[in-house]
């Protein structure tokens, strides 16, 4: 996997690592209790309140630090469950073929076509008490289909490779075949579908918190935006209330997308953006001519 560690992947992993760190230590290093009110009402960023305060005097910097955990926990848990589901369904469908494949593919396609966010909103609002793990579960139940579809296609092509056919001919058991011959070759795709699902889960949980479906007493970046929206922060010009949380979401999303580009380029080297500091302009259909002095013998 060494070549997967290109600049993009490293940048993505670094940002991701930073947020994971915040998620772990955020509640300890937060200067204030995120829910504690104070007399500093709606103050812009200052030395005492780096990201300013809310209209009840809560410290937004502390809210952002504490809120990282909720976002990442839901994102990673949902990503993990959905990935397990997509591997189970996608690989099984691709490997078994026949009626099982028809059925499982149709199932994934249905979940792909049905708009996920409205469904998640409805399911969550039916639930009496939607905590982080419950939300992660609902998100993963609707977010596995994309990965399953890609894994199925890849498994189908792997299944026809010689070494799998050979192992099959020697009477290897199906589950051994899948675990030892097929899965190792799907690692990159599984990783990329995990990252993709985490992006989806992060955006979903933030959306749910923002519209107030998830419990608004659990701090996450969406909750901050929910309160900001409710307090008409926009109309009052309190930009500091919604800029930091939004930028964090965008940065986290960018980091995850960069990790995925790295994986994609590892799988399909043609997608790489630069030819590694080359000075010659590569142009499809017009091979560059770079005559060297003396030439080679």
């Amino acid at each position: 996997m060494k070549s997967a560690l290109n600049g993009k992947t490293i940048a993505g992993l670094s940002i991701m690592g930073f947020f994971v760190l915040i998620a772990i230590i955020g509640s300890w290093i937060a200067p204030y209790d995120p829910s504690a009110m104070s007399s500093d009402i709606m103050t812009p960023p200052s030395g005492a309140h780096w990201f300013g305060t809310t209209q009840t005097g809560q410290d937004i910097f502390s809210q952002v630090l504490v809120g990282a955990r909720g976002v990442l926990v839901v994102g990673l848990v949902a990503g993990a469950i959905a990935t397990v589901l997509s591997v189970l369904i996608g690989v099984t469908a691709g490997f078994l073929g026949g009626v099982a494949d028809e059925f499982l593919s149709a199932l994934s396609n249905i979940f792909l076509v049905v708009p996920a966010l409205p469904l998640i909103i409805i399911v969550t609002s039916f639930l009496p008490d939607a905590g982080d793990f419950l939300i992660a579960f609902v998100i993963s139940a609707t977010g596995w289909a994309w990965g399953a579809r890609i894994l199925r296609a890849q498994t189908l092509s792997l299944r026809q490779r010689d070494y799998v056919e050979a192992a099959r001919a020697t009477g290897e058991r199906t589950w051994r075949l899948i675990v030892f011959e097929v899965l190792p070759n799907l690692t990159a795709i599984i990783a990329s579908s995990f990252v993709g699902t985490v992006i989806f889960a992060v955006l979903s949980v933030i959306t749910l918190s923002f519209i107030g479906v998830a419990s608004v007493s659990n701090w996450n970046w969406g909750t901050i935006l929910f309160w900001a929206q409710n307090a008409q922060a926009l109309a009052q010009g309190a930009w500091w209330w919604f800029i930091p949380a939004g930028l964090c979401i965008a940065l986290l999303g960018t980091a995850l997308a960069l990790i995925n580009f790295g994986i994609d380029e590892y799988v399909n080297p043609r997608l790489r953006t630069s030819a590694g500091g080359s000075k010659v302009k590569m142009r499809v259909g017009f091979t560059p001519v770079l005559r060297q002095e003396g030439g080679r013998s």
């Binding site: 959306t207 929206q229 926009l234 919604f242 979401i249 965008a250 630069s274 590569m282």
Partner: peptide, 30 residues
Amino acid sequence: KRGSWIDALLPITTFFSAIPYFWLGLIAIS
């Protein structure tokens, strides 16, 4: 035009695609 200056725009597009729609809406309003 792979490998040209347009590739430099890709990280920016990535950033924009990572922003939740509604947050961009909030910024636009403000």
